[in-house]
Simulated scan of single mutants.
Amino acid sequence: MKLNNKVALVTAGASGMGRAGSELFAAEGAHVIVVDVNAEAATEVVKGITDKGGSARAAVVDVRDLNALKQLADEVMAEHGRVDILYNNVGIPGAAGLDLTPEEWDTGLEINGRASFFLSSYLTDALKASGNASVIFTSSTSGLIGSPFSPMYSFTKGGIIALVRSMALAMAPDGIRVNAIAPGSVETPGLPGFFRASPEETEKRKAAFFAQIPLGRAAQPEEIAQVALFLASDMSSFVTGVTIPVDGGLTAK
């Protein structure tokens, strides 16, 4: 039980990498607040956790709504008095190419960057109260080497890497560690959104992209969750301000 009695909050916690993280954190002893805009999916994840003897609750929130995020932070502080793990996992592929609209650009910024920053800000007192908190962001290899599909996505995910370094320095005096994971291709429901093509063409583009990965495949969500567990737990007690690629060797090239 690496997270025994910890309070963990996971955004976009009802699908893909977030779901895998929610389930693993709960299996390791944490009480998990599964934050998602999809009420049905969040409820399903919570039921799966509690049916196995774990502890979790759902919080249905649109992360673009800063008032809702502030309310969530206040609720969690009132319920628990602290947050030990904040997994800022929420993100979207965003509009592809250079011809996106200003509205599409703003949506990408809101979901991929603004939401996680302000939720972290609103939870600062709760994180300080932990005395040993871990904040984890989901960046991307697209923030390290650039995405041929979505410049906006690279912009936001690269910004997360810089944000993590800055926040790690600002929060270290309070015993709060801040790190990021930079996944490569991961087999999640959102993966086809990166390729912006018909189902048949998407499969071709996926195969071509996976062929560039030294390990020759995409990651499974559970493989990302294992790295999140490392960063959430005392196994990484002296790790802060870093971004860990989990990409099958892609960025090593």
Rank of each mutant, 00 (worst) to 15 (best):
L3W: 08
S15Y: 00
S15F: 00
L24A: 01
G29A: 03
A30M: 03
V34L: 03
V37L: 14
N38H: 06
A39F: 10
A41V: 03
K47A: 14
I49K: 00
T50F: 02
K52N: 12
G53K: 06
R57M: 08
R57Q: 14
A58T: 02
D65N: 15
A68K: 13
L72S: 10
E75W: 02
D84F: 02
I85G: 01
I85M: 02
L86K: 01
G91W: 01
T101G: 09
E104C: 08
T107K: 14
A115N: 07
F118H: 15
S121R: 15
Y122D: 11
A126Y: 07
T138G: 06
S140N: 11
S140T: 10
S142E: 13
S142I: 02
I145Y: 12
P148W: 15
F155K: 09
T156H: 15
K157D: 08
A162E: 13
L163F: 14
S166Q: 14
M167F: 12
M167C: 02
P173M: 15
G175Q: 14
I181G: 03
P183S: 04
E187H: 05
P189E: 08
A197M: 09
E201S: 10
A207Q: 12
A228G: 08
F230H: 05
L231G: 08
S233F: 00
P245C: 09
L250F: 13
T251M: 10
A252Q: 13
K253L: 15
